[in-house]
């Protein structure tokens, strides 16, 4: 996509302000502890569908913890306790009968460091559909191509689908990981600092891709890079010491923050 279309997308989202009322994630009074450490405090956030929501804040502010709570990956750390609710499409993800596997099938995730499996590119993309019972070779072929196209990397790898995913560059690996997440056609894509391990050119490609993906998916992206948040997101939440300090339209946050601490952070006074 070109810069023109990014601008258009941005403008579109501003126009959507009123009509876009469908919540994808509604967080109510979420608290989280790692053992004794109170990592998230009384979080309330209403994340809308088909938008890019950025989460910013200094390291240790809980932004990564929060995004990992949205698909309950945070529970892989032992001794994590939570209270409060997170409604995903009106259903509390902490409900006893809500299986994490089901949730994660609906919510894809892209991680900080590109983490393809040490398998072929094809097998990486087909991983999700396969574990969820899709075995038909023809359908898998189709899903692989569609996902790679969706992640804007089809042309680069179409002739080397059988090669090990580690034989390509880091930026390409990250797009493979995005394609892997797209393969099960999730509803939401969580991105946890997806460009922090990448060079500027690869970063730009991922940012363009995020803009494109927003048409079909709701995207929540954690980033330590404020310019990135400003460039690609519709809404931005500023986290500090486990609390949400401010949550608003990205334009508003960056041009006219209402909280002094937000202003200090985005003007580079700390963090």
């Amino acid at each position: 996509m070109t810069t023109v279309s990014i601008a258009k997308a941005k403008k579109g989202s501003n126009l959507n302000k009123v009509e876009n009322t469908n919540s994808v994630y509604l967080t109510k009074q979420l608290n989280l502890w790692y053992g004794e450490k109170h990592a998230l405090k009384n979080i309330d956030l209403d994340i809308k569908e088909n938008e890019v929501t950025a989460i910013i804040g200094p390291s240790g502010c809980g932004k990564s913890t929060y995004i990992k709570t949205l698909n309950r990956m945070v529970e892989l750390v032992p001794s994590v306790k939570t209270s409060g609710e997170i409604l995903y499409r009106d259903r509390n993800i902490f409900d006893a009968d809500y299986s994490v596997e089901e949730l994660r099938t609906r919510v894809g995730m892209v991680f900080q460091k590109p983490n393809p499996f040490p398998k072929s590119i094809y097998d990486n993309i087909a991983y999700g559909p396969r574990i969820h019972g899709i075995k038909n070779k023809k359908i898998l072929d189709e899903i692989v191509e569609k996902s790679l196209r969706g992640a804007a990397i089809w042309d680069e790898v179409k002739d080397r689908l059988t090669e090990n995913a580690y034989s390509i560059s880091g930026g390409q690996q990250q797009r493979i990981c995005i394609a892997r997440a797209l393969a099960i056609e999730p509803d939401v894509i969580l991105m946890d600092e997806p460009t922090s391990a990448l060079d500027p050119i690869s970063t730009l490609k991922i940012e363009e891709l995020v803009q494109e993906l927003k048409q079909d998916y709701s995207i929540i992206i954690v980033t330590h890079n404020m310019q990135q948040a400003a460039r690609i997101s519709d809404k931005t939440a500023f986290f500090l010491n486990g609390e949400v300090i401010e949550y608003d339209q990205t334009d508003a946050i960056f041009s006219n923050p209402s909280d002094k601490r937000t202003e200090d952070y985005i003007s580079g006074r700390f963090g």
Binding site: T105, R106, P129, H132, G133, I134, I139, E142, I143, K146, R149, G150, A183, I184, E185, P186, D187, Q215, D216
Partner: peptide, 20 residues
């Protein structure tokens, strides 16, 4: 999915439907 149609893939149930 919009871009599936756009890019000319023939129609089939969505992956989520197949998974379900």
């Amino acid at each position: 999915m919009p871009f599936a149609v756009e890019r000319g893939f023939h129609m089939r149930p969505s992956v989520q439907e197949m998974i379900a």
